[in-house]
């Protein structure tokens, strides 16, 4: 059984200092075991200026078992799958502890953006590029940040139009965008899985 009282307290604590940390966590729909987190890209990295959304699922054994986290926003990083968003980070696996929280876990993910570990890659292609052609890696990572992590700077009508052009009905697009807080990547994911 997930410790729901604890999760509530975690959400309160995290959202209290969102101005300082920039880390947000909120429940996805009504279910508190399925959350969405977001982290700002660290300054001085190719991810600067982007906001990255992370899908969080709490397993039954939480907080004894680590939260399952996955990037929803596409990101070019040696330890994050460019395909699935899977994250390779020890504290999300065997180094997890109930002493950690969703917020500290997201801070660690943010630190991972600043300090890639290409020798322990999740995405071999990205890791190869990082090691062999660092300049191209930086260029690609920056381009992906521009293309995918800054999309929320578009106006709501532009987002609606983009999604309508993909073939989704406008009323559903609007309500879905609203439900995910205006994030078009999340909206697209939701529309596709509906």
């Amino acid at each position: 059984m997930v410790d729901l009282a604890r999760v509530q307290k975690e959400l309160q604590e995290c959202n209290r200092d969102v101005q300082v940390s920039g880390i947000r966590v909120s429940p996805k729909a009504d279910c508190i075991t399925h959350l969405i987190g977001s982290i700002p890209g660290p300054l001085g990295t190719p991810y600067e200026g982007g906001v990255f959304n992370i899908d969080i699922t709490l397993p039954d054994g939480y907080p004894f078992e680590p939260p399952k986290m996955r990037f929803v926003t596409k990101v070019w990083h040696p330890n994050i799958s460019s395909q699935s968003g899977a994250i390779c980070l020890d504290i999300l696996k065997d180094q997890w502890s109930p002493a950690l929280t969703l917020k500290t876990a997201l801070l660690s993910v943010q630190a991972l953006l600043s300090a890639p570990e290409p020798d322990d890659p999740q995405d071999a292609v990205v890791a190869q590029q990082y090691l062999k052609d660092y300049q191209t890696f930086v260029g690609t990572a920056r381009y992906w940040t521009e293309a995918f992590a800054k999309a929320s700077s578009l106006g709501i009508d532009e987002k609606v139009q983009k999604l309508v052009e993909m073939g989704f009905p406008e009323d559903i697009v609007r309500s879905t965008l609203e439900a995910v807080g205006g994030d078009e990547n999340l909206a697209l994911e939701k529309l596709c899985s509906a």
């Binding site: 604890r6 307290k9 002493a99």
Partner: peptide, 10 residues
């Protein structure tokens, strides 16, 4: 600096 909720239950 441990948040109270991380250890109080234990």
């Amino acid at each position: 600096g441990y948040p109270e909720f991380t250890f109080e239950d234990f």
